[in-house]
Amino acid sequence: MDTATATTGANQTAAGSRDASSLARRETTRFRRLLTFAGRSPRIWIPVTFLILVGAVSIGAPWIVPYDPTQLLDAPLLPPSSTYWLGTDDFGRDMMSRLIYAGRVSLGVSFSAVTLAAIAGVLLGLSAGYFRGAVDFAIMRTTDLFLSFPTIVLAIAMVAFLGNSIRNLILVIAVVYIPRFVRVVYGSTLTIANAEFVEAARVVGARDFYIMRTAVLPNVAAPIFVQFSLSLGFAILVESGLSFLGLGAQPPTPSWGNMISAARPFVDQPQLLLAPSAMIAFTILALNTLGDGLRDALDPRLHGSR
């Protein structure tokens, strides 16, 4: 398929840059077809439905929650009841409201962080793979360097030195996930940047940035989506891990991680522990399943094999 489009590109070198954008359009339709295909796969629509639900509840939290999540309402450690669906925590705050608000914090932080990481990673990976030479060397060696630190340890260290606040948390998680995006985009860019249609666009004098945006980016988009889904899962893991250790979101702000940590002494009220644990587990499970499903749906080699 690539050879066919490349030949078309070579025949119309005069209209090279226009050709690059029509190619990009064609890639977009191909992508839409894949999404339709994906819609029929339960490994994609089940997690997507779940994530949309969790996302909507988190965004709508201020209008949905029955009580103020930080207000001391009633006796501590009440069992679940019709008034407090998940009971109250050790400070007498409504668990259900806290769980919903915590989702807002955990998902908000992770989503912002991974979005930042994706933007930075895509720019760096594209540049490294497209320009090669010194740019490639500088970007890729730095990436390798960051990858030699365990993610959570790097995050802990950065929080230690930067100080902890929600803004720094987002920044730290973004930084530790940039290398993953760089790697993924770099690999795909290397193969695309040498394709004849990219060469053709360059011959007719299209600017580098234009070529990267219209010819290279659409062709490396698929792995970015997969990586986004997987990284979001890991980012939730890091965010909740840091909060669990007391280095992330600070009480009284609820986050799934610090709720688990706070619930540990109260063995007789297992819902305090199980509710946030289940939310973390199911959210990450959904993101990982989605990532896997997307990868299979987007990988043409696997079509028909399942």
Binding site: L237, G257, S277, N288, T289
Partner: peptide, 15 residues
């Protein structure tokens, strides 16, 4: 395996 991959260590450990 997918579940093992998704449930964070601190959740498993705490449980």
């Amino acid at each position: 395996a997918m579940i093992g991959l998704s449930v964070p260590g601190f959740v498993v450990g705490t449980l």
